[in-house]
Design a protein around this nucleic acid. Sequence first.
DNA 1: CACGGATTTAGACTACTTCTAAACCTGGAG
DNA 2: CTCCAGGTTTAGAAGTAGTCTAAATCCGTG
Lengths: 132, 132
Amino acid sequence: MADIYELLRSAGVQPTPQRLAVARYVLGTTSHPTADEVLAKARRECPTLSRATVYNTLTRLAEHGLVRPQTIREGVVVFDAHTERHHHFVDEATGKIYDVPWEALSVSGESSLREYDVRDYQVVMRGRRRKS
Amino acid sequence: MADIYELLRSAGVQPTPQRLAVARYVLGTTSHPTADEVLAKARRECPTLSRATVYNTLTRLAEHGLVRPQTIREGVVVFDAHTERHHHFVDEATGKIYDVPWEALSVSGESSLREYDVRDYQVVMRGRRRKS
DNA sequence: CACGGATTTAGACTACTTCTAAACCTGGAG
DNA sequence: CTCCAGGTTTAGAAGTAGTCTAAATCCGTG
């Protein structure tokens, strides 16, 4: 949340008002928004913001490691402000995506996969979130 | 590939020429095709086949457990004829998806996830396939 | 052979994403 | 101060994935 302006600058992304509005929303939520959701929220701060700018900005933030696009939900890319390794749980009833800490699961056996140079992996779980 | 006709019938899907063409292709490949790829291939056998029929048929095959839709590649659903549990490896250079046997990996720790009722899970890996 | 239900079809339509070309800053050189 | 050049933003067009609709077709039964 802190100083988004400085965060963008130090990541090498010139901080324009539009980019700040996008970054403030996407970096401040854990809800895995789609580009359109980011557009809707960021427009509250910057009403002329265009769809193209949102896509450009999200792509740029991703290139600079500030968000991570994820292919988990059907038909859309969602953006995750949580950039360290972690797993995901998808609630099939609501479509909501939850982050699962890396340490909650342990995966072994990758070493047997000689044919593949695995650069990254994650466990994707689906089911229902228990009401608590 | 055996008797697709019987396979459809016994799964409760009325085997029409269009459905046979779709099923023959999608059940006979390990390439995780998209609906459009299935359309292109199945049209060789059945040139009047329409896009809508391909979507309808793939949905029906999925409902009857003969294929499994997967959300792994950006922006598209791919269909996997391999319906038992398994993991996936995505080659980031080519976009190709490879099946990884269930036994090749072991995941532990799901039990700590009290908040979630995990009905299904898989490991999704990304990287480069080694040329062999 | 007519009927009715299931199936197929083309094309319209929606959603998501990328592209394009014009407009718009903004900051430095003259 | 003015002009220019870069980068940025914009609306809308275009491209791609998938769904929907209504008419046409097919097929088994009476």
